[in-house]
Design a protein around this nucleic acid. Structure first.
Lengths: 185, 185
DNA sequence: GTCTATAAAATGATAGAC
DNA sequence: GTCTATCATTTTATAGAC
């Protein structure tokens, strides 16, 4: 007999391996071995490897914004909330060993799959919408950049900082991005 | 008999497939089939699939900067050259169907391989160095950003614009990035 | 140097017992 | 629902003829 939570253990293990190693390089064999479940149990819960990938993306998307909401809750004011976005992602990258954005990693590997691409876009769009919303809440801002440009710049600073961090396995670039953000905000 | 250029045909085919489909998803079988060469010929020129990947990265790195040099040659002045970097990458993305940066794609798939990571870092660093150099050549610039911050921002705007373009299969984000660059330069 | 044939292992997925 | 056994393919790589 096995303690319940088989489906959860499959998804957790697959999620970890997909992120750490990559999707295509992670085989079903490794997943069932490390999750310590039977081969057919996996296919019982997830009809195919692709379904497992989509579940991973959906699950990560949900927990990502849950964590973000909790992180932003104690922060007051749109400007500080925007800067907290940098801290949130830096903190997450530290936790995940600087392997970059979960969604960008998958996008690089499987962006031809429309179901995958849709989920990546949905995730990024929601993040971008949040940035736009916060920027619009800043009172009497005077800058050479208009609101849309500022929001785009902040988004790209965030994305870029994480992407570069992947190469150096550090948050240095993201910290620099935050400094730049502090200057232009 | 076969017209010469076997090695070149192998590398060209592999390069195209690695970029379009991804590295891990591209099998030796597909490469030898589309290059129309024999299995052992591939292993004669490239001892392993990894060697083929490294050759792809080295080759792409070289041609990338050759093309960039040619592109920048007729452009006068550091500011216009910096803006031309955006045009260069937008032009390249159009040519390659908006699949993102060759090196970032591989980094997402195989960044645990040190030989791969070294080449990705080398490529990005050289690009960054060029940006720093051009920024330093701008005469009497007055901005809220210092030179290092400006260079970092331009780099991240460039990288981010290409990365987002991958999701939407367009150069819209890169065009917006260029507009922002024009504003802050 | 290029070729065909083949090896050994891993891939995603299914059948059928319990 | 979970299990073991097995399937057909595909994977990277090698042997040996020409």
């Amino acid at each position: 007999m096995r303690e319940s939570g088989v489906k959860e253990r499959i998804l957790d293990t697959a999620s970890r391996l997909f992120y750490d190693q990559g999707y295509h390089v992670t085989g079903i064999n490794q997943i069932i071995e490390e999750a310590d479940i039977a081969r057919a149990s996996l296919y019982n819960h997830f009809p195919s490897k692709t379904d497992l990938l989509l579940a991973y993306l959906d699950n990560t998307h949900a927990s990502w914004f849950e964590e973000l909401d909790a992180f932003l809750k104690p922060v007051a004011g749109p400007r500080d909330k925007l800067l907290a976005l940098f801290d949130f992602r830096i903190q997450r990258q530290r936790k995940f060993k600087y392997k970059g954005c979960h969604f960008n990693r998958i996008a690089a590997e499987a962006s031809d799959d429309q179901e995958v691409l849709t989920r990546v876009k949905k995730h990024k769009q929601r993040f971008k919408d949040l940035i736009y919303e916060l920027v619009s809440q800043i009172p009497e801002r005077r800058s050479i950049l208009n609101n849309d440009q500022l929001a785009d710049t902040l988004f790209l600073l965030l994305e870029g900082g994480i992407a570069v961090g992947l190469m150096y396995r550090s948050s240095d670039a993201a910290e620099q991005s935050k400094q730049i953000a502090e200057t232009i905000l």
